Simulated scan of single mutants.
Amino acid sequence: MIRKPWQSTLAIIAASIGLGSLANAQELTLAQCPPVVQSAIRNNSQGGTLEEIKLVDRDGASLYVAEVGLGENRDLKMYITADGTVVRSRQEIDFKTVPVPVRRTVLGLLPEGAVVSDCDVETAEGATKYVVEFMISPTRERKLTLGADGTVLSEHEKEKN
């Protein structure tokens, strides 16, 4: 698909709000969304249950953020433009389902005794990334972001309270 320049701008907006606070967001029902946004949500919900939709306005651009429960404590978050384009999605997945190169890299970096605590697949502008979190001690967590080929794109550690 060929993206228009404004679609890339909206993808950047979506990425910039990330998983952070959506304090300026307005909660909506599915019926309150434009028909194309409703279709995008229905077509990409993977049979899950719609839990929440928020309308976010950033620099005059509207973005719909839909959260879908997929069962088994998994969820999906989609960032959708007013024209119904899903510019970003993030889905919680089982670590066993990540591509072999990603799993191989993570297991090679996993300290002895560490346990994977969370795994997400994120898609934005046609690129897929995997975000894997694991506990390296009872109070320390590491987060890796990897490309589909297993390349580490970023790595962060933080103290857990």
Results as ranks from 00 to 15, higher is better:
residue 45 S to V: 06
residue 29 T to H: 02
residue 110 L to F: 10
residue 6 W to K: 06
residue 79 Y to P: 03
residue 122 E to H: 05
residue 25 A to D: 06
residue 64 Y to W: 04
residue 20 G to D: 04
residue 2 I to L: 11
residue 50 L to K: 03
residue 4 K to L: 11
residue 86 V to H: 09
residue 72 E to M: 15
residue 81 T to D: 04
residue 95 F to C: 08
residue 68 V to D: 09
residue 138 P to R: 12
residue 123 T to C: 15
residue 9 T to A: 10
residue 156 H to T: 11
residue 156 H to C: 04
residue 131 V to I: 04
residue 16 S to A: 11
residue 108 G to S: 10
residue 84 G to V: 09
residue 69 G to A: 15
residue 31 A to F: 09
residue 153 L to T: 06
residue 161 N to Q: 12
residue 63 L to R: 10
residue 68 V to I: 15
residue 92 E to W: 00
residue 154 S to G: 04
residue 151 T to P: 11
residue 47 G to C: 14
residue 147 G to D: 15
residue 52 E to F: 10
residue 70 L to F: 05
residue 6 W to M: 14
residue 99 P to I: 08
residue 60 G to K: 02
residue 58 R to C: 08
residue 156 H to W: 05
residue 37 V to I: 15
residue 86 V to E: 02
residue 15 A to Y: 07
residue 66 A to K: 05
residue 11 A to C: 10
residue 123 T to L: 15
residue 147 G to V: 13
residue 26 Q to W: 00
residue 62 S to C: 12
residue 94 D to C: 10
residue 125 E to P: 11
residue 44 N to C: 10
residue 157 E to G: 15
residue 161 N to C: 13
residue 139 T to I: 08
residue 49 T to G: 13
residue 151 T to S: 11
residue 140 R to P: 03
residue 109 L to Y: 12
residue 132 V to T: 06
residue 36 V to W: 00
residue 52 E to H: 14
residue 12 I to P: 00
residue 23 A to V: 06
residue 31 A to T: 10
residue 88 R to V: 07
residue 127 A to L: 09
residue 127 A to E: 01
residue 85 T to N: 14
residue 89 S to I: 05
residue 90 R to T: 05
residue 67 E to Y: 01
residue 132 V to D: 02
residue 132 V to C: 08
residue 57 D to Q: 14
residue 142 R to Y: 04
residue 64 Y to V: 07
residue 80 I to F: 04
residue 3 R to P: 08
residue 124 A to D: 01
residue 32 Q to R: 12
residue 120 D to I: 09
residue 38 Q to R: 12
residue 80 I to V: 14
residue 26 Q to F: 00
residue 31 A to H: 07
residue 82 A to V: 14
residue 47 G to F: 11
residue 16 S to H: 13
residue 49 T to C: 13
residue 40 A to W: 06
residue 122 E to Q: 10
residue 1 M to F: 01
residue 62 S to K: 13
residue 6 W to A: 13
residue 26 Q to R: 10
residue 44 N to Q: 02
residue 152 V to P: 10
residue 115 V to W: 00
residue 71 G to E: 00
residue 111 P to N: 04
residue 72 E to R: 14
residue 102 V to A: 07
residue 20 G to Q: 03
residue 64 Y to F: 05
residue 69 G to L: 12
residue 151 T to I: 09
residue 134 F to E: 00
residue 26 Q to Y: 00
residue 141 E to I: 08
residue 7 Q to P: 14
residue 103 R to I: 01
residue 120 D to E: 15
residue 34 P to E: 03
